[in-house]
């Protein structure tokens, strides 16, 4: 069996777990829909004048916000495997050393794609219509997955360092809430006070949301998309080696 097949098998295993974990399924299926509905109908009138106008703005934003939160499951799942001894079982098998980690990240990509499509469908049901070519949806999906991949490395580090899966979740959400809210996901950049505007403008969540809006409804795409990719590259370059170093260190210490 090739290492690619091993990775696919391990990804299949991660997805199989979902059936037994309705909370996780809820978390990344129902929660984003709930967010979308709440923000749309509570803030829509105030922010954009009407819910219909706000939908164009908030849908890509919620897609990006949810993407960031779902990456926590990479760390959560990895930590569960490490603390429960499942990771050791895999390591004692004659399979590629990197396939357990790759399988988990791959499964995460599938979950991410599912969330994006789910939110798009719900958006359409609420009246959202594409204002740009359909190919934009695919480009957006690719862009989002590249960024999710980069974020996965941060979560691998969290999963390795955390004592137990609960701490992964706690850390993940505590750190990610400010990151997603200090962005243009919910409100346009020019409504913000100047002193946080620079931070919000540079936040990769803002950049991704802006690129996604452009790809779905028309507007600037190239610049925010390129900056998002730069962020993804930097995050990967920093966190992939760091996470692997931390993982090997943890494995060598027990």
């Amino acid at each position: 069996m090739s290492s690619l097949q091993q990775t696919l098998t391990l990804a299949w295993r991660s997805l199989l777990q979902l059936r037994r974990n309705p909370w996780e399924l809820m978390d990344f299926s129902i929660q984003p829909i709930l967010f979308l509905l709440l923000f749309l109908y509570v803030f829509g009138g105030a922010v954009a004048g009407s819910t219909a106008a706000y939908l164009d703005f908030i849908l890509p934003g919620v897609i990006v916000m949810n993407l960031v939160f779902v990456t926590v499951y990479v760390g959560h799942g990895l930590n569960t495997d490490l603390t429960r001894g499942v990771f050791d079982r895999f390591r004692a098998l004659p399979i590629a050393r990197w396939s357990p980690l790759a399988g988990r990240i791959l499964a995460d990509m599938v979950k991410q794609a599912w969330c994006v499509l789910l939110l798009l469908v719900v958006g359409f049901l609420l009246g959202f219509r594409l204002g740009a070519p359909v190919s934009g949806v695919l480009v957006m999906l690719a862009l989002l997955l590249v960024f999710a991949f980069a974020m996965s490395w941060i979560m691998v580090l969290v999963g390795v360092v955390a004592r137990d899966p609960e701490h992964v979740q706690l850390f993940g959400f505590t750190a990610l809430f400010p990151v997603t809210f200090l962005s243009n996901v919910f409100v346009p950049l020019d409504t913000l006070p100047p002193f946080i505007r620079a931070v919000v403008a540079a936040n990769p969540v803002s950049l991704l949301a802006e690129a996604s809006r452009g790809l779905l409804s028309g507007g600037p795409v190239l610049e925010p998309a390129l900056w998002s990719l730069v962020w993804a590259g930097v995050i990967t370059l920093v966190f992939a080696p760091l996470s692997l170093w931390a993982l090997n260190r943890r494995l060598a210490r027990s």
Partner: peptide, 22 residues
């Protein structure tokens, strides 16, 4: 191992099939 290192979320059969496939 000292602790059962099987995947708790999977069924017994799925766990064994997973190892066999790997």
């Amino acid at each position: 191992g000292q602790y059962a290192s099987v995947d708790e979320k999977l069924t017994g059969r799925e766990n064994l099939i997973l190892i066999a496939r790997l």
